[in-house]
Amino acid sequence: MDSNNIEYMNDGSINLNLDVKLYSRDAILNTTYRFTHKCYINLQKYEEKTALIVFSQKNENNRDIELLVKEFLNELIDQQLRVDINNETKDIRKMIISEAFAPLENINESEK
């Protein structure tokens, strides 16, 4: 069985079970943000092994919900990559900003 599993529900919604070893909470939320204008997304649970996300149509004229879930999964890969890059570089990013604005450290003193 796929570690990521898609279930088609009778009411037309789709349940997407994601393996949280592959996708972090941040990656899932970042991806969800990019799709909430296209369909309803309910992040029902994020547990030790799996996350359950329910997709349903906003109205009958909406695009095919299955296609949206596929696009969601594609986007999720890039979002997880961004999370990974950020995890690797976040300390350096903080150091760059600290170094860039170091001349402002005593700004409150100089204002007095």
């Binding site: 350096i92 150091m95 760059i96 900003i97 170094e99 860039a100 604005f101 170091a102 001349p103």
Partner: peptide, 17 residues
């Protein structure tokens, strides 16, 4: 070491801002 790139990027970032 990331020290030199950090300094270079910090200077660029400070300039941009």
């Amino acid at each position: 070491s990331p020290n030199l790139p950090i300094q270079l990027l910090a200077t660029q970032y400070r300039t941009k801002k």
